[in-house]
Design a protein around this nucleic acid. Structure first.
Lengths: 188, 188
DNA sequence: TGAATTCTGTACCGATCAGTACAATTAAAA
DNA sequence: TTTTAATTGTACTGATCGGTACAGAATTCA
């Protein structure tokens, strides 16, 4: 069937990086081609739907990654406090201390927000809800847990903006630590 | 000299709105023209430098507005706690409970970040520093005040992202109130 | 081997981009 | 009113946009 299985998969992560760095409109086919190492012909062979399909697949992949690496551990880990601490480390690594942006968050501020409204809302809601579950398992009442979760999910996005705005990598981890301390997690 | 003084000034605020809604690259001359009500000829008459000059002037105007309405009150108001409370109200109105985005924050996430790095960094640093001064005047030690100020400036950006992502206007004011409560401001 | 299929580079399309040129219009100044 | 300068609409430029067409190369399968 496919001549080089994995070429498409590799392309997706490369395309994701181009969308991250340049946004939806700034991610021209020239850049997508250069970033993925695939010519225009190949790009349209793997993604016949063009940019729309590429970005849809990228968002899908991001959602799957976060579900597996972040949301599910928060919901089901034996130790919710450890899961939250682990989340902070995972997030710092994923966003490279703020050098990498959140594609979903950037989309939320851009003019493609309406077009991807559903995917954007689902991503943030899933994160907030998973974190809220972990906090409830630590004994917080649901309304408090929701509030705290919302505060942290938003806070992470704000830390990304501020770290990039002030060109201060240390800011990101500092913000994560502040948020973690605010939760007053039990020692394990 | 000028036939209609104020036309240029009005155009600037209209252009700002277009940049806010569509970003730098998405703000095409067609949209800038439609948004400002000025034809292409007039636009280049008032802003010979083209888009670059338009956005520079817009950023300048935003900086002036915040300096006057937010930063200076934080630094010099008789009652710092009241100034901070007032800031929250001003910010909620300015950003229309998250329906309006922060142009500077959006730029920080976009690919024009490097181009406007200086203006972006100055805006955020000025905000953080002004807020830190107010907190220091409330008795917080400088390192603590800096930390708290950084937390809030970033938090506001995060609240903007989250409010738009979840399409939840109430979220924005809720986040502002959370942050205000966190500061434990003295009653006046 | 040969046939079928997957993959890729290139040439091309119409639309739109930012920006320029400039004549026509409008209003202020003399 | 005449002169001068500010303002505006329109037509145009070359570059680039996303997308299409398709022939040929590469690979798998029979």
């Amino acid at each position: 069937m496919s001549k080089h299985p994995g070429v498409r998969a590799d392309a997706i992560t490369a395309l994701a990086e181009v969308f991250r760095e340049h946004g939806y409109e700034g991610a021209t086919l020239t850049r997508l081609s250069a970033g993925s190492g695939l010519g225009k012909g190949s790009l349209y062979h793997f993604f016949p739907g063009g940019k729309d399909e590429m970005v849809a697949v990228v968002l899908e992949e991001i959602d799957q990654w976060f579900t597996k690496q972040v949301f599910e551990p928060l919901r089901h880990a034996d130790d919710p406090a450890a899961a939250i601490r682990s989340m902070m480390i995972t997030i710092d690594a994923y966003f490279r201390s703020g050098r990498r942006t959140c594609l979903v968050g950037a989309f939320a501020l851009s003019d493609v927000r309406d077009f991807f409204a559903l995917q954007i809302a689902q991503y943030f809601a899933a994160w907030r809800d998973a974190l809220s579950v972990a906090l409830q398992r630590l004994g917080h009442a649901p309304p408090d847990a929701d509030d705290m979760a919302e505060d942290i999910v938003a806070g992470i996005q704000g830390a990304l903006v501020a770290a990039r705005a002030l060109d201060d990598e240390a800011l990101f981890l500092r913000a994560l630590r502040r948020m973690e301390r605010r939760l007053d997690l039990p020692l394990t």
